[in-house]
Simulated scan of single mutants.
Amino acid sequence: MHRRRTASLGDPIHPLRKDYDKYRQGTIFHRYAGRTGPAGAWEIDDLGERLRRGAPTVDVSLAAVQDTVPAVRLVGDLEQLLARRRDALMAQLPTAHRTADTAPSTAAPIIVEARPQGERRRFTTADLEQVRQRQTDGEKLTADEREALERLATAMEKASKSFMTAFAAPASPDRRSPDQFRADADAYVAQLRRAVPGAITAAAVARAEAVRFEIRNPTDRFLAQLEVIVDLPAELTAVLPGRHRAPIEWPDPPPAYGSLTKFDIGMPVPPITVTIPPYGFRPAPVARRPEIESTAESTVVRFPAVDVRAHGHVLLDPLAVIANQGFAGTLTARWSATATNLDGRVENATTLRLSPLLLDVGELMGRTS
């Protein structure tokens, strides 16, 4: 039986432009298995259909080769633990000023945050110099880089004011009233509560395996600078796995009631030195990472563009994906892909499986309980 060989879409028909050997001008050739010869009727039909359909478009698929997402569930009573911490602070007050009141509760479902404190990138002095130079050159900075420059400016201003105060304000007896100390304790408990989502995210990222997406090119065409965008539903949060190496910055409790008020600059300020790079120096290019944008409706992840060979596949950067409390089963993530050398956009969906991850609230807040 004659087997039709379907041509790839997009290329026009290329007839012979002048007489060659025994073939006349206008002859159409076709590549058969192991040889090239004049096209037959079936092959010419395929070439005409290919021309009718027009230019080729992007044709790829996306699959989650590691598709398990931890669904965080807290074990223990967070509000009870915070109340015990506040009671321990209130025990420092004179008996006559102790009350049975509790801290104002703003209890709400704990939602895993997209940018916890533990996710901050740590910048060295050299890193900051490069970031400031890029800002001077008009380059666009990432959110982490802008935040680092703001923290540096705030730290330097705070350190300057604190050092000036240190020479004029010696240690003095505690001048806080019981009501002021109570307000400090309530503020401390509120800060602890706000730090919990970041601690949940950091703990989940440390214990769970990162999600890996793989892009696959089933065609015989090379795909240049293929960009993949994944749109995660609101129930999921995405962060970069390597950004959780730093410990969670739990707030410090207020000084004990009745203690001396001592000079405190509020945070350690490392020495800052400015070095002049040698002439012609060019900093090493910074590897691109996925860009994550979180809103109330979804989390959009834009992966760096990659080249994909014909019939090839590429693993995209790992991504830590976490589900908020109370979810189980599966969730669907929408995705799209475009390439610079082909027209069109591919849009589809992939499924992620949710697996319960139990986190003990007492263990999570061990440093503060």
Rank of each mutant, 00 (worst) to 15 (best):
E147I: 13
I111T: 13
D87S: 05
T95V: 14
R132C: 09
P70C: 02
A107G: 10
I111C: 04
L128F: 09
R73L: 03
R121L: 06
A148I: 09
V65Q: 06
F123S: 05
Q135Y: 12
T95Y: 13
R98T: 10
D127W: 09
R53K: 13
T57H: 10
A91I: 14
A55K: 13
L128C: 08
L78C: 03
V65C: 01
A143F: 14
Q130T: 15
A71L: 00
G138F: 10
Q92A: 11
L81C: 05
V72N: 04
Q135N: 14
V60P: 06
D137Y: 05
L78H: 01
P104W: 05
G138T: 06
D87C: 02
T57G: 13
R120I: 10
A108Y: 05
A64M: 00
D59I: 11
D87I: 03
T57D: 08
A83V: 10
T136M: 11
D101V: 06
D101A: 14
K140D: 15
Q92I: 04
T106C: 09
D127C: 08
R85I: 08
V112Q: 02
A91E: 12
P109W: 00
I110A: 02
E139G: 09
R120V: 06
P109H: 03
R134W: 06
P116W: 09
A148K: 04
G76R: 02
T68L: 14
A71K: 00
A107H: 03
I110N: 03
V60T: 10
R84K: 12
V75R: 12
E113M: 05
V131S: 00
V112F: 06
V75T: 09
Q130R: 15
T68I: 07
L78Y: 04
I110V: 15
A126V: 13
D137L: 12
P56S: 15
A103N: 04
I110H: 00
A103R: 01
R84M: 11
T57Y: 05
R53P: 00
